[in-house]
Design a binder for these strands. Structure first.
Lengths: 238, 238
DNA sequence: GGAAATGTTTGATCTAGATCAAAAACAATT
DNA sequence: AATTGTTTTTGATCTAGATCAAACATTTCC
């Protein structure tokens, strides 16, 4: 994988140029402010591919910040239906800021390193640190915005539009944080994409093939997609 | 309408007993703390049925808190496709905490009274008031949780499950804030419900009829639904 | 290197829910 | 209470995407 180098590059930058919020390297923010206290409330952890970091029904005790790798968070409906809430990247937060149960499951995609904050301790720390409180507020507002956009996708877009928007979004995100955005490397499986977009794996595969046939993308491998025509893709995505 | 009396009752309570967050009467919270400063940064406004409070492309300048009535917030996809993000009740917030454009449109359902906060001034105020900062953080986290639940609904539930869950959710919410929860009065139209659930108006109507036929609910009028069997409805909702 | 396991694509069919159409219920106005 | 406009329900058909099934690719691991 190329992620070690990319993560290093990533860490050089610490703000999303567009929204000025994400990826704010939270750790760094704290380090700049009060390194000592910070190290008291967080610790490093590693997870291997496909291991659960936590489950939906678990007691919510921690907040995590990704240092390396990718994480998917998903809701379990019942018998096995899954809705993926999001694919997360270095700099992203997940977990729960509130007491009670987690609202989703979190699972490592590939090897992952995270920074773990004990919710309770973090909360105490937030009380004493306004910069941190506001940063968390900004972060959470931003996530809320993304979640609202996804309601539009899941509620109103057709399969073609969903996939196109998915690719455009990932590409823009990569560009923003300074990663290679063409060809696009997709860390997740087709099944994951399907569960993210509210489609089946077959439909996702067919839509990818349609993009290939119409020369909008070139499929270098299942997980490496070269975008020939951003404009066309963008038009498809609504 | 019965809402005047109900709103009054509502205002007696100021916290959701379940999550301990919502409906936190933000105004009251501020009033208790620092009434003078509060009145500097907010004002009262009224809107009539079907008037837009703001549009998606508008510059985001305000945050609103509902004092009386209902508001729907929705995303415009393009040509006219609409995805309703949520139906809001007294005590709920909407608008944007961030600069830039609003991420959705807001429209009054029936007559509405709101408390308007200028974002910029509120932000300055937040800087000086940790209680408020944390309250906003809690509020936003809670909204994020709801948004994530809705991804599961829109991505994975079928029409029957969506409607059942919708009715159960509304009923529970009413119960929580001490409003009558059976019969259930629905302030929104069938079209609104359809746009909220990612279905068509015809499908919503058919699903209501199915619930009627199977004796799960009694349809007193289009906007008054009596739930005969909570357990059955709950089972349908997954 | 080859067998087994896993992930992806393609094809054939089926169905939940959309769309089109019209009737019925309800509300508002004179 | 008749007229007009709006909203809801019901019916008949159609279609996007699901499901079922099988071939094809890629990775894993002995």
């Amino acid at each position: 994988m190329q992620s070690a180098q990319l993560n290093k590059e990533f860490n050089e930058k610490n703000r999303c140029s567009e929204c000025n919020i994400r990826p704010y390297s939270f750790c760094r923010c704290l380090q700049e402010e009060k390194l000592k206290e910070f190290s008291n409330i967080s610790s490093d952890k590693k997870f291997q591919d496909k291991t659960n970091i936590f489950l939906q029904q678990d007691d919510a005790k921690n907040i995590y910040n990704i240092t390396e790798g990718n994480v998917k968070i998903y809701q379990l409906i019942d018998d096995g239906r899954i809705q993926i809430i999001g694919f997360l990247y270095p700099g992203d937060f997940f977990g729960s800021y509130k007491n009670g149960k987690y609202n989703y499951c979190a699972e490592a995609i590939g090897d992952v390193r995270v920074c773990v904050f004990e919710q309770k301790k973090l909360d105490e720390y937030v009380d004493k640190n306004m910069v941190l409180a506001k940063e968390l507020l900004n972060q959470t507002s931003h996530e809320l915005t993304l979640a609202q956009d996804r309601m539009g996708v899941l509620g109103k877009l057709d399969a073609t539009e969903r996939l196109a928007k998915f690719l455009i979004n990932i590409s823009e995100q990569r560009k923003r944080i300074g990663w290679q955005n063409n060809p696009l490397s997709l860390p997740m499986t087709r099944q994951d994409i399907a569960d993210y977009l509210g489609l089946t794996i077959e439909t996702v595969s067919r839509e990818v093939s349609k993009l290939k046939t119409s020369n909008v993308v070139k499929v270098l491998s299942a997980k490496q997609i070269y975008i020939n025509d951003f404009d066309k893709l963008s038009n498809l995505s609504k």
